[in-house]
Design a protein around this nucleic acid. Structure first.
Length: 523
DNA sequence: TACAAGGAAACAA
DNA sequence: TTGTTTCCTTGTA
């Protein structure tokens, strides 16, 4: 069953660090400083795994960083008001109010990103809390990323797999016969690994160019342990592979290739075609997981997946949610007093100016969001953006709600409302039967023109609503869940279950048929 | 009588 | 395991 309730099933941010990060050389990847120019879709995002060009990540001496900072400051002096600078010198330390509120619903543990310090791979990079500030965005990488837009995902995945093997083999080859690294693959491996001969085996010796916290964006994406648990995946055991002779075998194969100097990489890739397919479903699931993550966030916050539809309040809701999800320090919301379009247009530097302590992370999360949405839009045959839209997005749901209304008087068939579509393809064929009650109620509330007679907001900002027609609401709920025997007594019992979960509560002055969504479910 | 509150067990995914 | 669903009792307006 698709998990859409934040209290228990919210898809946490990805964390694959235990999956392969321990053995995966992230220095092969472009630095996070490329984020402003990179992924406009998931293919690009995933392509960060494996630069098919084999180009090493650009290195930036410290003086370039300082130069970039000076340039940035100069631009800020030109374009920003003095008060915009003021807050940079006074990082906000206050905690989000909702974090201090006892009544705030506890987020599921599974939704909490695993601490970077808890990951072997990440622990190496925890010294610098703001790695982005030291990574100016190289304009030279723009071309590279643009080039990757034309790359087929399948090819990228193959390249990724091949690159991993090249890495594993590279250390052996480099030791024994570095002069024979003539093939393109070996060149790519060397170039990608930079000056470190074996980043996998010697992570405790980062190269001077390797900045702590590099690839923060990718780490954020891959920080989802639930993905691993969900599909019963086990961490990729390179040591075990080595012990079992797998790496030895692949080493031998590469050695054969190097002896056949000039041999094409495609030959090797073709030989391991079956093996390459093993990683494809994993990455596909990762992509799907990101989608579900966004989808669930939309459900919780009541926002659309499309940033262009975000209002100022939506932006703030998303910011608060992201801060909460990643335990980020509170920011000044007034600096993000903008709609989704304006937010989307912000550069990483602008994010950092507005939120010095966590602007990069927020920017990265937004980039992932945009990339995922762009990916969906590029695949109209899959679940379209409209299906990602929150059930609470009143701006776009009213049209479909008419069908829901029709349901009441007709066959209780699979719902056509957008909430019912929210679950992914794994939700089965029974329409909206997997919808949660609180989502359903918000769906009804989102269409007052259709259901205002049976349920309506009393105080939208506080999430207070009143069930005007308990019988009708219960009947609608019963039809949605295919429970003909549903009545208000049962429905209200389900609502009361939300009390201890922190999803809903009774209002301070208890009134009959009046309930209140807890934060952030009221958003 | 309708609703609120909550315990307990069963059910479905 | 979670999110209900179902049934129940008790209390209140």
């Amino acid at each position: 069953m698709l998990q859409t309730v934040p209290s228990a099933g919210f898809s946490p941010p990805c964390d694959y660090t235990n999956f392969a990060a321990d053995s995966f050389d992230l220095s092969l990847l472009p630095t996070d400083s490329e984020v402003p120019y990179s992924p406009t879709n998931l293919q690009q995002l995933m392509s960060l795994y494996c630069d098919p060009t084999g180009s090493p990540p650009p290195m930036f001496p410290e003086f370039l960083d300082d130069l970039q900072v000076l340039k940035t400051m100069s631009q800020q002096h030109k374009s920003n008001s003095p008060e915009q600078f003021a807050y940079q010198q006074h990082p906000v330390k206050e905690e989000p109010m909702y974090l201090l509120h006892q009544g705030y619903p506890p987020l599921p543990q599974a939704s909490q990103p695993s601490s970077p310090a808890g990951s072997t791979a990440s622990s190496t990079y925890t010294n610098n809390p703001s790695p982005y500030q030291q990574c100016p965005s190289p304009s030279s990488t723009h071309t590279i990323i643009k080039h990757e837009q034309t790359i087929d995902l399948q090819e990228i995945l193959q390249e990724s797999r091949f690159l991993q093997e090249s890495l594993g083999n590279g250390r052996t080859v480099a030791k024994k016969e570095p002069q024979k690294m003539a093939s393109e693959c070996a060149v790519a491996s060397n170039a990608a690994t930079g000056q470190s001969s074996d980043p996998i085996m010697a992570p405790e010796k980062p190269s001077p160019e390797k900045k702590p916290g590099d690839h923060q964006l990718l780490r954020e994406v891959l920080r989802d342990m639930s993905f691993q648990r969900k599909y019963n995946l086990k961490p990729f055991d390179f040591d075990g592979l080595a012990a079992s002779g797998f790496l030895a075998a692949t080493d031998a194969r590469v050695k054969m290739e190097t002896e056949e100097a000039g041999a094409s990489c495609s030959v090797a890739k073709g030989e391991e075609g079956s093996a390459l397919m093993n990683i494809e479903p994993v990455l596909s699931l990762a992509i799907e997981h990101i989608r579900e993550d966004i989808n669930n966030t939309c459900n919780v916050l009541g926002i659309a997946s499309d940033l262009a539809q975000w209002t100022v309040d939506d932006v703030k809701a998303w910011l608060l949610w992201t801060l909460r999800q990643y335990n980020l320090p509170m920011i000044h919301m007034e600096y993000f007093n903008m709609d989704g379009v304006a937010l989307s247009a912000l550069s990483e530097e602008e994010f950092q100016k507005r939120a010095p302590e966590c602007g990069s992370t927020l920017y990265a999360r937004l980039e992932i969001w945009k990339a995922a949405c762009a990916e969906v839009e590029s695949q109209p045959d899959m679940s379209g953006p409209s299906q990602w839209n929150s059930s609470n997005n009143s701006s776009g749901s009213s049209g479909e709600m008419s069908e829901d209304e029709d349901e009441e008087e007709s066959e209780p068939t699979a719902s056509s409302s957008n909430v019912a579509k929210v679950p992914s393809s794994r939700s089965g064929g029974n329409g909206g039967s997997h919808i949660h009650l609180w989502q359903f109620l918000k769906e009804l509330l989102s269409s007052p023109q259709l259901h205002g007679s049976c349920i309506r907001w009393l105080d939208r900002s506080k999430g207070v609503f009143k069930i005007e027609d308990s019988v009708r609401v219960a009947r609608l709920w019963g039809k949605r869940k295919n429970r003909p025997a549903m009545n208000y007594d049962k429905l209200s019992r389900s609502i009361r279950q939300y009390y201890k979960k922190g999803i809903m509560k009774k209002t301070e002055r208890s009134q009959r048929l009046v309930y209140q969504f807890c934060h952030p479910y009221c958003l």
